[in-house]
Design a protein around this nucleic acid. Structure first.
Lengths: 195, 195
DNA sequence: GTCTATAAGGTGATAGAC
DNA sequence: GTCTATCACCTTATAGAC
């Protein structure tokens, strides 16, 4: 049988991040105390500092991990050949990836202002890399005459805002399946930038 | 000459709301203390309680005022006759109104989770009334055969997210004028829902 | 109308026992 | 690896002086 007190470093570490993610998403970084996180994990507050140097690092690790997962997942994605196929792949990928991890997405969008200056710069760099993926697709399609976007940066911003917005209203088991939602958004995105 | 201590109730009240709006938008409701707000206004913390019963009410009044301004401004707006003219009016109105008050918009979107349950219900009701404006335009256009939106609720959500997203990147005096931005977004919105 | 002082309690982070 | 105890400080909100 297990001891009441013992070695759990390989279990407690992930549990700390998971608890922080859940609580930061629900109540916001500033409103959550280290004691609340510890209570969710099932340890005392002091024990958290074995897994993070401070609260700020906990937030940064969560956000950096999320952005890196996003970029890695896109790179591993099957992409079509032409701009139209690539845009469809991006739209479906973005919606699916974001719906899979609502807490991480919420934190990544809401807690930027609670990052230290240095940490903010890192996260912004990763975000820019992701935005460049979509902007490149749009630029390529524009040059090929498949899209008619007078400004690729604006079109990129408009599409990303539209797609990420799904997270604010979609509920699993609701009126529409994920696939149906992806199809409807792909239809709107396609038409919005069509030549 | 003015006394150091005197009667300023008609000046201090608005200053408190303005300071709170600025600080909540920059740092978040939970991260801002009553002492910080007082310091921004130029009074001591205790004096704030002459103008608000508590911190929660300060947040609620800001958000409720913003949502009521939004609905009032839309009702005072010139609208076109057909669905297409009405959609153009909505797109341009939404972008313009939101760019005019970035702090209030930021708070309205970011601080919902810091409202008490009762206050949240009130704000959600006002938000729903605004969403209904756009959904009605889309439904009317769908029935008239001007729009092709398989689901008016989804199209409404997609368009509002897209339009509100302008606030995240637009900077006064930047590369594009407000009117140019409105024109480009109107072009994308129109095409996205076009028949 | 605003101030100072204070109540009652929460905060992030660390030290040392086990 | 985790706990308890603690430090120094900040929090919202109120009472009473001016």
């Amino acid at each position: 049988m297990a001891r009441k007190t013992g070695s759990h470093s390989q279990i407690t570490g992930p549990k700390v991040r998971q608890a922080a993610s859940k609580l930061f998403a629900r109540h916001g970084f500033a409103a959550v105390s280290m004691r609340q996180i510890a209570s969710e994990v099932g340890v005392q507050a002091g024990a958290l500092y074995l897994y993070t140097p401070d609260k700020q690092s906990l937030l940064f690790d969560l956000m950096q991990g999320h952005m890196q997962d996003l970029l890695t997942a896109w790179e591993a994605q099957e992409k079509g050949r032409g701009p139209l196929e690539q845009l469809e792949a991006f739209v479906r990928f973005h919606i699916g990836f974001h719906l899979d991890r609502p807490d991480a997405v919420f934190i990544a969008y809401m807690e930027l202002r609670n990052l230290s200056d240095e940490n903010f710069a890192v996260i912004e760099g990763l975000r820019k890399r992701y935005e460049d993926v979509l902007e490149s697709i749009l630029r390529e399609g524009q040059q090929a005459g498949v899209f008619a976007v007078p400004d690729t940066k604006l079109a990129m911003m408009a599409l990303i805002a539209m797609l990420t917005g799904v997270n604010t209203w979609y509920r699993e088991g609701g009126r529409l399946s994920r696939d149906k939602v992806e199809a409807i958004y792909w239809d709107m995105a396609r038409k919005a930038v069509a030549a």
